[in-house]
């Protein structure tokens, strides 16, 4: 599952990273997108991209295609 599969309001957990640019990954890691962290898709920008997510109590925006390196698993509510 990827970020682009989430609907606004849905939650997911980070399960890992695909092979990706080290620089981009290091930014995501610093933001706390580490294994097991739960995130929620808040909304999608007017043109469908980027998306806004919430994790660890703050809001972050990422582009769908770039953030596709994040592997997610759905969270059952």
């Amino acid at each position: 599952m990827r970020i682009s599969d989430l609907q606004p309001g849905e939650r997911a957990r980070v399960s890992g990273y695909d092979t990706s640019s080290a620089a981009y990954r290091s930014k995501l890691l610093a933001m706390g997108l580490t294994r097991g962290v739960e995130l929620r898709l808040c909304r999608v920008a007017p043109l469908g991209d980027p998306v806004e997510i919430e994790l660890r109590g703050f809001r972050l925006t990422l582009r769908k295609d770039e953030a596709a390196v994040l592997r997610l698993t759905p969270v059952n509510e």
Binding site: S21, L28, M31, E66
Partner: peptide, 8 residues
Amino acid sequence: SHFVLELP
């Protein structure tokens, strides 16, 4: 450039 931006 990648896009990783906090919305404060």
